[in-house]
């Protein structure tokens, strides 16, 4: 289920609605907006697939995702030279800016080219972005990666078709915030804090 957030939704970045659906060219003039991103709220069923973490451990995706921590998720591959490095840099900067709160979050990056992205390659990629223990990268079989991509509606026919999408969820059972396009680290941080506040309020009124 995908629900577009209404005007009343207290999320920033709504001025960017529609940006993700127009083709972005590096030579097109930039519109006067904070970012090139588009946000929506969505529920996804986390598929029960086995993945392999960048430390070599075989894990179940639902367990990795549902350990209680807020999750920030994206899909990348290590030989992607255009948008993935930017997505990973954004996560790295976001992680850095969390400061002392860093230990509370779980950053997850799932490879969409899992056969090329062996554990060793993923580990090297993670190190390049100074990923701490809160940020894990995942590979696995081609089928497992595909299942995960389909579950989060990011599969676009092949790896070259993928676009920049970032997912944030405050806690298991709460909706995901889906951010399409290039969110900046600052915006991601604002969204993250906002989602946590909302979630806390929801829990308090229960």
């Amino acid at each position: 289920m995908l629900r577009l957030l209404g005007v009343a939704a207290p999320l920033i970045g709504l001025a960017a609605v529609g940006a993700a659906f127009s083709q972005e060219s590096s030579e097109q003039s930039a519109p006067p907006r904070a970012s090139h991103s588009f946000m929506s709220s969505a529920q996804y069923t986390v598929p029960d697939v086995r993945l392999v973490r960048d430390d070599g451990k075989a894990v179940a995706l639902p367990e990795e995702m549902n350990d209680g921590r807020p999750v920030v998720l994206n899909f990348i591959y290590t030989t992607c030279s255009t948008i993935c490095p930017l997505m990973s840099q954004t996560l790295a900067q976001f992680d850095h800016e969390l400061g002392a709160d860093r230990g509370r979050v779980h950053l997850m990056s799932i490879s969409i080219d899992p056969e090329e992205d062996t554990v060793a390659r993923l580990h090297a990629y993670a190190q390049k972005f100074h990923a701490g223990p809160e940020w894990q990268h995942y590979t696995g079989t081609a089928q497992a990666s595909l299942t995960a991509q389909r579950a989060f509606n990011v599969w676009r026919g092949d790896k070259m078709g993928h676009s920049s999408v970032t997912f944030v969820r405050a806690a298991p059972g709460t909706p995901w915030l889906r951010i399409e396009g290039f969110v900046t680290p600052g915006e991601l941080l604002q969204q993250y804090h906002h989602l946590l506040e909302q979630s806390g309020a929801t829990v308090a009124t229960r």
Partner: peptide, 24 residues
């Protein structure tokens, strides 16, 4: 190497397409 032009514009210089991102 991460900042090199080739990463996006390719060795041919003819650019690329990744998702809805066009590299001219």
């Amino acid at each position: 190497a991460d900042a090199a032009c080739v990463n996006c514009h390719q060795r041919s210089g003819l650019g690329s397409t990744e998702g809805n991102t066009l590299i001219p």
